[in-house]
Design a protein around this nucleic acid. Structure first.
Length: 578
RNA sequence: CGGGGCGUGGCGCAGCUGGUAGCGCGCGAAGUUUGGGACUUCGAUGCCGCAGGUUCGAAUCCUGUCGCUCCGACCA
């Protein structure tokens, strides 16, 4: 490919809406163009990258006996009504009607389609296990797309679905897929991706893992232990506390606290720390707007996912009205005898004494609250967000750190949620009718490309790992107006292509600065420089994009040398994988 | 869904106490340059997001609307 003919502009200035490096470089380097909020077209360089990523995905899925299939993008609402998700999923799913008025949806995930595809086939145990996968466009009407390809509305995803006749078999296969995922990230140049235990959210099921690239620009919070290998999604991390009770319990005393509402204000007023207070966090159930009051230690935050899981339904922050029986800013556990309230207590309060709390009376708080004495009936559950420096649920050491990460894939043990609702059954050896157990496994292709860029770049542009780079060699003819340079570079271009290498060839009559800047933006791992200076010495320069490698080769044997270097690099990558 | 910000050539921006648009980059031509985004000269490119309103006159003021974006909520 001649760079001169490559469609798409490269430019110097950072567009104002690009806030992360991957987005900036992909826009500046002519990789993509925004079409609408969270919807992009790809130019050739990005298309070549995603094609290579997809090929890696195919190979690794095939290696775990996956069969590539293809589900439709557009599906009838009836298919989603079978699983119940037509109703349970909100505005994230795009819905429309066809000409006859029949409701349709755009696929945002394909569990239903997968079950539909195989439920007639999988009627006997002898057909199991099997796995099907596709690489397909998904549309999710995200509330807030952001950061270029990191979070978009339309994207390509590899999604896989496995079907099993026993939990043990699923678990065995799940483990295989976990390893396959590790290989995928390693091959794509992101061996640093870690898997974390996660909350499975709307997908249902129990065990799941998210694969995370740790980076400050990530959207998810991840809990890591510095002392052991414990890793978890923020939502799933158990919060363990060692509650320290004072020896002497003071008496419960009402204190006048005019115009003081927040925990910080109350504690400042009472000259105590927020961790010696009991705060109330009020929610309402989405289903019926009934109130849920959660008491938690003043310095901690509520993990709403834990709360949702405990309640078995979604909640939203409460709107406290005059007549709901709650004194906003003065809610406390003592004397809160309200009929229609669900009152919950976080473990962080268990056994504590000498706390401050609201008195359920306007402008009054209590001091000297003793949970054991004053709130004897309380049951304690874990609703708290784990904190930096918190206690690791695995090793028990106070070595928890919280990092940000980009989710570049995830795997779920789905169980029978979809096979049950959609009536997929098989007969086992004993002639008993059973529901197959499912697993599912997803990787977003574009997001992975963005994550690679995020992890591998310098101030000038991306540094694509060889396995996913849009081209393998970037041939620069510096001073292409020089006849010797041009003639030799043309010849070398020809030779490299004949050796089966992927070459982007820049023979534009532009200054070296422009040429190198463009090469930096395209991030091709090996750069070959032909110039008058080099020609005079009978040599060409071969340098790697990451500057780790730089050597010269004779003009006569340059093509062979380059091919050798690439072969060696490919082989090295293969060795590392083992 | 809540709260901010912004819509002016392809990109980045100025103009916004009203008088019909300007700068830098990029683009085209000519020439001088040539190993990290060169220089000079000339040139092209704008329904100033859209629709109303105020006014003799609107990029500028008012109203509405659409779009983009950031923070939060939500989230396979």
């Amino acid at each position: 490919m001649k760079l001169e003919k490559l469609v798409g502009d490269r430019f110097k200035e950072r567009p104002s809406d690009c806030l992360v490096e991957s987005h900036t470089f992909m826009v500046r380097g002519g990789y993509l163009k925004s079409v609408a909020n969270g919807i992009f077209s790809s130019y050739m360089p990005l298309k070549r990258i995603t094609r290579k990523i997809e090929q890696i995905l195919r190979e690794e899925m095939d290696a775990v006996d996956g069969q590539e299939v293809q589900f439709p993008v557009v599906m009838p609402a009836s298919l989603w009504q079978e699983s119940g998700r037509y109703e349970s999923i909100g505005k994230e799913m795009a819905r429309f009607n066809d000409r006859s008025g029949s409701p349709l949806v755009l696929g945002m995930t394909h569990e239903e389609a997968a079950v539909q595809l195989v439920r007639d086939y999988g009627q006997t145990y002898s057909k199991y296990p099997f796995m099907i996968y596709q690489i397909q466009t998904k549309f999710r009407d995200e509330a807030r797309p952001r950061a270029g390809l990191i979070r978009v509305r339309e994207f390509t995803m590899k999604d896989a679905y496995s079907f099993h006749t026993s939990q043990e078999d699923l678990e065995k296969y799940y483990e295989k897929c976990h390893k396959a995922y590790e290989r995928i990230y390693a091959r794509a140049g992101l061996p640093e991706v870690v898997s974390v235990a996660s909350d499975s959210g709307m997908m249902g099921g129990s065990v799941s893992h998210e694969f995370m690239l740790l980076t400050p620009i990530g959207e998810d919070s991840i809990v890591l232990c510095e002392e052991c290998d414990y890793r978890a999604n923020m939502e799933a991390a158990e919060c363990i506390l060692q509650n320290q009770r004072d020896e002497i319990s003071e008496a419960l005393t009402m204190v006048h606290t005019p115009d003081i509402h927040t925990i910080e204000d109350v504690c400042a007023f009472l000259h105590c720390e927020t961790k010696t207070s009991c705060k109330a966090v009020v929610y309402q159930r989405n289903s019926d707007d009934s109130y849920v009051v959660l008491f938690i230690r003043g310095d901690l935050e509520v993990n709403e996912t834990k709360l949702t899981n405990y309640l078995g339904g979604d909640v939203h922050p409460a709107v406290i009205t005059e007549d709901c029986g709650l004194q906003a800013g003065y809610i406390g556990p003592v004397g809160l005898e309200n009929k229609n309230l669900t009152v919950l207590f976080d473990c962080s309060l268990e056994g504590l004494n000498n706390l401050s709390c609201g008195a359920n009376k306007e402008e009054y708080h209590y001091t000297g609250l003793d949970m054991t004495r004053d709130v004897a009936h309380a049951e304690y559950h874990d609703f708290a967000k784990i904190q930096q420096g918190g206690i690791c649920p695995h090793c028990g050491k106070p070595a928890i750190t919280i990092s940000r990460g980009i989710e570049v894939g995830n795997i779920f043990q789905l169980g029978t949620k979809y096979t049950k609702t959609m009536g997929m059954t098989y007969d086992d050896q004993n002639g008993e009718t059973k529901y197959p157990i499912m697993g599912c496994y997803g990787i977003g292709v574009g997001r992975l490309a963005a994550a690679i860029c995020e992890a591998h770049h310098d101030e000038h542009g991306p540094i694509w790992p060889l396995a996913v780079a849009p081209w393998q060699v970037h041939l620069c003819a510096v001073r292409a107006d020089d006849a010797d340079v041009k003639a030799y570079a043309d010849k070398l271009y020809e030779e490299l292509q004949n050796k089966g290498l992927e070459v982007i060839y820049d023979d534009r009559k532009v200054s070296a600065g422009v040429m190198f800047s463009d090469a930096d933006l395209l991030g091709v791992p090996y750069r070959v420089i032909v110039s008058p200076r080099n020609c005079k010495q009978g040599q060409v320069e071969i340098v790697s994009r990451d500057k780790a490698f730089s050597e010269t080769a004779s003009m006569d044997t340059a093509a062979e040398e380059i091919a050798k270097i690439l072969a060696a690099a490919t082989e090295e990558a293969r060795q590392i994988l083992k």
